[in-house]
Design a protein around this nucleic acid. Structure first.
Lengths: 344, 344
DNA sequence: TATTTTAGCACAACCGATTGCAAATAGCTT
DNA sequence: AAGCTATTTGCAATCGGTTGTGCTAAAATA
C-alpha cells in the first residue's frame, strides 16, 4: 500500500537494505557485477516499496529520454493514425514512449514543435512534413546533435537522412496502367502542388509516363490541380471534368476521399461506374471497401511504414555508428482491383 | 550556426555573460527580480547561442514534466483519433506535450502502460478504459500522488475522479425516440457486454425506456449482443434480424460502422431504407455522411471531449486545490437526421 | 602460506534547471 | 555622510538515477 506524495526512489531502497544507490541501480538492471542474491533482494524490496523508476532522472543523466517524437500534420487522417499506431506498437516493444505533435500543415507550428521535441530531448524523431514546409533547416538541430531523424511519406527532397516512403512514381504508374488495361482512353487525374519531387507530383509523373508509354495523349484539361485534398474540392473538380465536351472515361485519384467524391458525383449524374467511368483511388482507406461500388485503390502500408520508421530509430540508437548510411526505405504498394474499375 | 554534440545550457550562457545560472534561469522566465536590461541581454544571448531548455532537467527538479499522458485502446478509431486531436491542440496552447499509449483493449497492457506513464512523471492522465478492464486499482498511483486523472467516454463506474462523457442513456433514448416518431414499431438494437453502467448498457437502457414510454413492446429477439463492434459482426447480426419471421422496421445501432453494415445488408436484400427499415447510428463518423443513403446518427463530440479533458487537467494543475470537486462533465449530443431514417 | 585474480559493492561526480536565502549594489532620505 | 529600503544577483542545495573509479574481501593459483 503506497501512500501520498513523495515518490519511492532508489535512495529509499538503498537505505532500507543498507546498500549504495549505485548497487540498487545496477541490481535493477541485472548488471553483471552484482550478485544474484543481491539482485533478487533488491528487486523484491523495490516491488514491495512500490518503486517506479523516474525516467526523467535517467533521461537527464544520459541525455536521452527513451522517447520517440512524432511530428505530423494531423492525427485524424486514417493514414496518419495508422502510422502512429505502427510506431507506437513498435516503440512499446522496446520500451520507448511516443510523444505526438500536430503541425496542422503549418510551417510555423512545425518549427516550434520541432524545437519542443528537441527540448524534450527525444531520442529520435519521425516526421511527415507540413504541406506548407519548404525549408527544412529546423530539423538540423536533430542531425547536429545525433538524434536520429526519419521522414515518412511526405519527405523533403534535399535532406540527407532516413526516409520511409513508397515509390509514388511507380504507384501512379501502376494505377494508371491498370485503368489503361481496363480499356480507358481518356484518363483524368487530380493532383496538388507543382514542385518537383513531392508526393503528388511523383504520382502525376507516373500517371503521365503510363499514358505516354501506352501512346495515349496527355491532356492538360484532364489534369486538375486542387487546393486541398478534400471531399468538397473533389466534387468540384469532378463536376468540372464531367462538364467537358468529351468526358474522361477514367480517373486516377491520389486519395480515396477524392475517389469517393468522384464515384458519388458520377452516380448523381447517372454516369455508370465502371462502364462509363472507371475510378482508382489511393491509400486503401477503410471507406474504399465500404462505399458502393467498392473503390479500386493503391495500398499505402501505413502501419508498416510506422514500424519501419520506429525500427530505424531504435536500431540506429543502438548501433550509433557515426556514419550509418542514411538509406531510403521503400515499401511496396499494390493495386487492389475492386468494382470501381473492373471492366473486364 | 550551432554545432555538434553538447547541448547549450544555462551554464554556457552564464559563463559567457559572467552571470550566475540562477540569474539566467530567472531572466528567461521574466522573473520580476531581474532587471529588464539583464533579461533582454540574456534572451538575446540565449537565442544567439541556440539555447533550448532541457525539459527533463526542469521536470526532474519540479517533479512534473508538463506532459499529458493518454492511455486509450487504439489511435485508429475515428472517435479516438479526434479525441487525441482535441487533447493535443489544447495541450499545445498551454505548452504541454502529449504522450500516447495504446492498450489495445488489453487489461494487462493497460496496467503496464499506466506504470510507464507514471514512470514518465506525466503531469496528468487522460484515459479511456480497455474493454477488458474491470479493476481500476492501477490508477491509484496517480490519485495517490496528486496527478490529475480524467476518464473519457469509457469510464469506470466506481472511481471518484474526473470524467468526461456524454449522457449515453439520454442519447440512446433520443435515437430510439426519433425512430418511433418516424413511425417505427419494431425497433431492433445491437449492443455489447452486459454489466450495468457501461456505455453500451446505458444506450440500451435509453433504447428500452423510449420503447416503454411509447408503449412499444421490448422484444428480446430484436436485441442482439455482439462480441465485437465490427463491420462483419454487424452484418451477421443484421442477417439474423432480417431472417426473423417478422422483420424489424428500424434499428438503433450504437456505432456508425454497425449502421453501415445494416444499411448495406438491407440493400443487398432489397429492403428499402428508410421506408421498410429505418436506421440510426452513433458517433457521426465521416463515413456516415458519405455512404448512401446518408446515415442518421448521434453526434459524439470527440474533439470537444478531448479539449474538456485536457482543460480539466491543466486547470487542476494550476489551482491544485487539494479538494477540488471531482465532477463529471457531460457534453451534449445531437440527433442528426439524415436519409437513413427520414420517413416523414 | 603468500600472492594474484575476481567478485561485489561504495563513493562521488555528474546531467541541467530551479529556488530559498544571503549578500551586494543602487537609490533615497534626512 | 550615515542610514534605510529596494533592487539585483550569486551561492549552493536539490530533483533521482547513472557510471567511472577504487577499495575490500573472498576465491584461485603458485
Amino acid at each position: 500500500m503506497m501512500e501520498e506524495h513523495r515518490h519511492v526512489t532508489i535512495y529509499d531502497i538503498a537505505e532500507k537494505l543498507n546498500l549504495a544507490t549505485s548497487t540498487i541501480s545496477r541490481a535493477l538492471k541485472d548488471h553483471h557485477t552484482i550478485s544474484d542474491k543481491t539482485i533478487k533482494k533488491v528487486k523484491q524490496t523495490a516491488k514491495e516499496m512500490g518503486f517506479v523508476p523516474n525516467t526523467l532522472a535517467a533521461g537527464l543523466r544520459g541525455n536521452k529520454s527513451r522517447t520517440i517524437g512524432i511530428l505530423i500534420p494531423t492525427v485524424t487522417q486514417p493514414f496518419l493514425s495508422s502510422l502512429i499506431s505502427g510506431i507506437e506498437i513498435t516503440a512499446q516493444k522496446s520500451e520507448y514512449s511516443v510523444l505526438i505533435m500536430q503541425s496542422h500543415d503549418s510551417y510555423e507550428m512545425e518549427v516550434n514543435l520541432a524545437k519542443s521535441l528537441y527540448s524534450n530531448r527525444v531520442s529520435g524523431v519521425i516526421c511527415s512534413l507540413a504541406m506548407e514546409t519548404k525549408d527544412t533547416s529546423h530539423f538540423k538541430q536533430f542531425s547536429n546533435n545525433n538524434i536520429p531523424l526519419v521522414f515518412v511519406d511526405r519527405v523533403p527532397r534535399d535532406y540527407d537522412t532516413f526516409r520511409v516512403v513508397i515509390n509514388n512514381y511507380l504507384a501512379g504508374y501502376k494505377a494508371t496502367k491498370h485503368l489503361i488495361e481496363q480499356g480507358c482512353k481518356r484518363i483524368a487525374h487530380l493532383t496538388a502542388g507543382s514542385e518537383f519531387g513531392t508526393l503528388y507530383n511523383e504520382r502525376k509523373r507516373g500517371y503521365m509516363d503510363a499514358l505516354i508509354e501506352h501512346e495515349l495523349p496527355v491532356d492538360e484539361k484532364l489534369i486538375i490541380n486542387l487546393k486541398e485534398m478534400t471531399y468538397e474540392d473533389g466534387v468540384k473538380a469532378c463536376n468540372q471534368l464531367f462538364d467537358l465536351k468529351i468526358r474522361p472515361d477514367g480517373l486516377f485519384a491520389p486519395g480515396d476521399i477524392l475517389a469517393v467524391s468522384a464515384v458519388q458525383t458520377a452516380k448523381k449524374r447517372g454516369i455508370k461506374i465502371p462502364e462509363e467511368f472507371a475510378v482508382i483511388g489511393f491509400n486503401d482507406d477503410p471507406i474504399s471497401k465500404i462505399i458502393e461500388p467498392n473503390i479500386s485503390t493503391i495500398t499505402h502500408p501505413a502501419e508498416k511504414m510506422g514500424k519501419a520508421a520506429a525500427e530505424l530509430i531504435i536500431k540506429n540508437l543502438k548501433s550509433a555508428k557515426e556514419e550509418d548510411a542514411k538509406e531510403i526505405t521503400f515499401l511496396n504498394t499494390q493495386v487492389l482491383i475492386r468494382e470501381s474499375s473492373k471492366r473486364i
